[in-house]
Amino acid sequence: MSPRAGLTPDRIARAAAELADEIGFDNLTLSIVARTFGVKDPSLYTHVRNLHDLRVRVALLAGAELNERIGFAVAGRSGKAALFAFADAYRAYALEHPGRYCATQMRMDPAEVADEPALLRGIELTAALLRGYDLDDDAATDAGRLLRSTFHGFATLESAGGFAHARPPATSWHHILEALHLTLSRWPSTIEEETR
């Protein structure tokens, strides 16, 4: 079989995702991906427009994987059980697939990816989780930002070896989730907007 046989956008994106986990998403180049298939860079341009296009494809692939894992974990759960399942699935994916996870944080042009199932599914999963806490739309937006910031910050620091204290990160993680559950359960009904 010739080295070019079987090249497709999906195969290229999956190879790039594997490379991202090995070498880091920021180090991903078309040349490195081309070498894994034994082809020259121009051979990829039939399937991906440029490096940005490739990175977007990796980000969407990783987002779909992350959402699938979270969706499976939270199925049939609500409230605290759903929060813990969601959070544990999120953290595990970030630690197991650091390059892919980094890709999910990539800023993308909303017009370019507005109808992508992976992005819509992520929003649906978060909204479903927060419905268990009976939050109105504004509170759910704020709570979603709190959860994303907490999950992302913890997983990123842990992945980078940022927790040097002897206390195991997993122990802190589950105490943090308990605190988040209490916060979501007692979310303030109104917060006066401060004006300067």
Rank of each mutant, 00 (worst) to 15 (best):
R121D: 10
A92F: 02
R148A: 13
V74H: 05
D138N: 10
F154K: 04
I12W: 06
W187E: 11
P169D: 06
P42T: 06
G162R: 07
V74F: 06
T29W: 02
A94W: 01
D21M: 01
R55I: 01
K80R: 15
G63H: 03
S31Q: 12
Y133A: 03
A75C: 06
Y90N: 08
H97F: 04
I12S: 02
L177G: 10
A160V: 00
A140H: 13
S2D: 14
V48G: 04
V113G: 05
E65F: 03
P3W: 11
G161F: 07
S43R: 06
V74T: 14
G162P: 05
H181D: 15
A164R: 14
L66N: 00
A155H: 02
L61W: 06
P3H: 14
R55H: 02
S189F: 10
M106K: 05
P110K: 10
L7C: 09
D10W: 03
A155I: 04
P168H: 12
P169C: 06
E22D: 09
T8I: 13
G99K: 01
A13V: 01
A111G: 10
L147Y: 14
V74I: 15
D10H: 07
A59E: 01
E96L: 12
R145G: 15
T29V: 07
R14G: 00
R11W: 00
N50M: 07
S185Y: 08
L157K: 13
S172I: 11
R49P: 01
L30T: 06
A179Q: 13
D88W: 08
G6D: 05
E124Y: 04
P110W: 12
A15K: 07
I176A: 14
L182H: 15
R100V: 00
A85R: 07
F84L: 06
R196C: 14
L83S: 04
A62R: 02
L7S: 08
T156I: 04
T36E: 09
P168Q: 11
P3N: 15
S189M: 13
T156Y: 09
D109F: 09
L19C: 02
G6Q: 07
W173T: 11
L180W: 15
D21A: 00
D10S: 10
A89K: 09
R107I: 07
Q105G: 14
P117I: 02
E194Q: 14
L177D: 10
G63I: 00
F37P: 03
L147G: 09
M106E: 04
R148V: 12
D26Y: 03
L147V: 11
H175A: 15
T8E: 05
V58A: 00
A155N: 04
C102D: 11
L83M: 09
V39K: 07
P188F: 12
L54P: 09
P3E: 12
I176Q: 12
R14H: 05
L83K: 04
D137R: 12
A128L: 13
S159M: 03
L125Q: 11
H175G: 13
V58I: 10
A59D: 00
